[in-house]
């Protein structure tokens, strides 16, 4: 395959533009000493990561964030699936209105949404718990998951399911052999976005979690006080996102 000159220039340029902030971040995270006029760090070392894990509690925060992110993603897919199906196939008379109601939480500042939920969670005994944080995250995760999932429920999926019904497949066999494989790229995209939305929640976690650490919570204070620790934490923050992105990209390779 021959590549046009434009592509030969454009591709590396795009990579460079994307990589530049990341390079600075990496340099910052490993710069134990970096004096003002110098373009490059003076001394490299692990101080940022040591402090991040020993003093800031990045380990616990990472674990919390992963658990919360995975639970919120799984719940959003399961709860969002039937809603997306009904909306995607336009089975309801006021489809647009219901869609709008579902998307409404996205217009609210996260801290306010979390603040409102806290009142309620205290009465339900859900405050200061992982379950409470997962539910609070769902307020924002679920609309995104639904918006993406509903685009997958096309007329073609209906036709294939009909075919499978006549071929003798009950609902579970249809789900396993026809619907989920047909929607695989859509499910992957929805899962990726759901995870990323939960992963970067700050306000809701702060309001509901009663100080329970997640990565954004432990990272933010260091941005002003110790940029090296903040950069190290940012890299810890970034790694699972890239992993999720890679997994989703793999799942995208499916025709329909």
């Amino acid at each position: 395959m021959s590549r046009s000159p434009a592509k030969r220039v454009a591709a590396p340029l795009a990579v460079a533009l994307l990589a530049l902030p990341l390079t600075v971040l990496v340099a910052q995270a490993f710069a134990d000493v970096w004096r003002a006029p110098g373009v490059l760090p003076d001394e490299l070392g692990w101080r940022g990561f040591e402090l991040a894990f020993e003093r800031a509690g990045a380990g616990e925060a990472l674990l919390n964030s992963v658990v919360i992110g995975l639970l919120a993603t799984a719940l959003a897919l399961v709860v969002g699936w039937p809603a997306a199906r009904v909306l995607g196939q336009r089975l309801l008379p006021r489809n647009g209105l219901i869609f709008l109601l579902l998307a409404l939480p996205l217009l609210m500042p996260p801290y306010l949404a979390g603040f409102g939920l806290t009142e309620w969670f205290i009465r339900l005994g859900l405050d200061d718990s992982l379950a409470g944080i997962v539910l609070a995250h769902l307020t924002f995760v679920l609309p995104y998951a639904i918006v993406i999932l509903l685009s997958g429920f096309t007329a073609r999926v209906d036709e294939l399911e009909e075919m499978a019904r006549v071929a003798g497949a009950g609902w579970l066999a249809r789900l396993r052999l026809v619907t989920v494989p047909s929607l695989r790229p859509t499910i992957a995209a929805a899962a990726l976005l759901a995870f990323l939305v939960s992963w970067s929640q700050y306000g809701t976690t702060l309001a509901v979690g009663a100080g329970r650490p997640t990565l954004p919570i432990v990272m933010l204070p260091f941005v002003r006080t110790d940029p090296q620790v903040a950069a190290a934490l940012a890299l810890v923050f970034l790694a699972p996102c890239l992993l999720a992105l890679a997994l989703a990209a793999r799942a995208q390779r499916s025709p329909l």
């Binding site: 009909e162 075919m163 499978a164 006549v166 071929a167 497949a169 052999l177 047909s182 499916s254 329909l256």
Partner: peptide, 30 residues
């Protein structure tokens, strides 16, 4: 899915993610 009938639709309605053989085997798998 419990009726002992089979149907060929106007368009073939094959599963794009499965091989030809797996498509044919769908009723057996079900």
């Amino acid at each position: 899915h419990r009726r002992r009938m089979a149907m060929v639709f106007q368009d073939p309605r094959l599963l794009p993610h499965a091989s030809v053989l797996d498509n044919i085997a769908l009723p057996l798998r079900a």
